[in-house]
Amino acid sequence: MRILLVEDDQTVRTFIAKGLSEAGHLVEQAENGKEGLALATNEKFDVVILDRMLPGGVDGIHILETLRGQGNVTPVLLLSALADVDEKVAGLKAGGDDYVTKPFSFSELQARIEALVRRNRNEAQPQTRLMVGDLEIDLLARGVKRAGQKIDLQPREFRLLEFLMRHAGQVVTRTMLLEGVWDYHFDPQTNVIDVHVSRLRQKIDKPFGRPLVHTIRNAGYMLQE
């Protein structure tokens, strides 16, 4: 993937760029808004990572608005030290696709970038059924089957599984689950997500021997064959 990274802090920029390159992406770096805007408008990227506050007059929101004004729909992930809910809303309103507050863990950022790109591809064809290995869910009938055997799930468990299936093969962080499945935008203090995932595992993994839901250390979960 070709990724544009606009971030003024040298340490943070190198940290992200190195990580993403190691993950096999091609990273273009810009250290100020002007440079970033020029790159973003003239070249084609799969994802743009934008720091919200940049020196030199052209800040992240400004770049974002300019891009969207030109009809550019490249997924944009905003980085910001402003954790405020209102700031988040403002960022998303300006056309951002996701918002990560500083400080963040690299795995969180990476998971979100991959989710963004995936979402962008998936939006093309709406799906009615999802399959991973021998696990199959029917989004219309709300039915779940593994190895031909019907599994009963609570509505929320179904949504959790659906989310994991949609991001199959990808790391999904706890915050992403909290936001995507529960629509919560606050810190639940305890590891509530772990408890719910472990319940889901009881139903879809335990009776079948071979686990599909994997725990990724220091990052989150991944549904994979």
Binding site: R156, H196, S198
Partner: peptide
């Protein structure tokens, strides 16, 4: 719903 599971745990 979120905490019920935690309580049971």
């Amino acid at each position: 719903e979120l905490y019920e599971a935690v309580a049971e745990e």
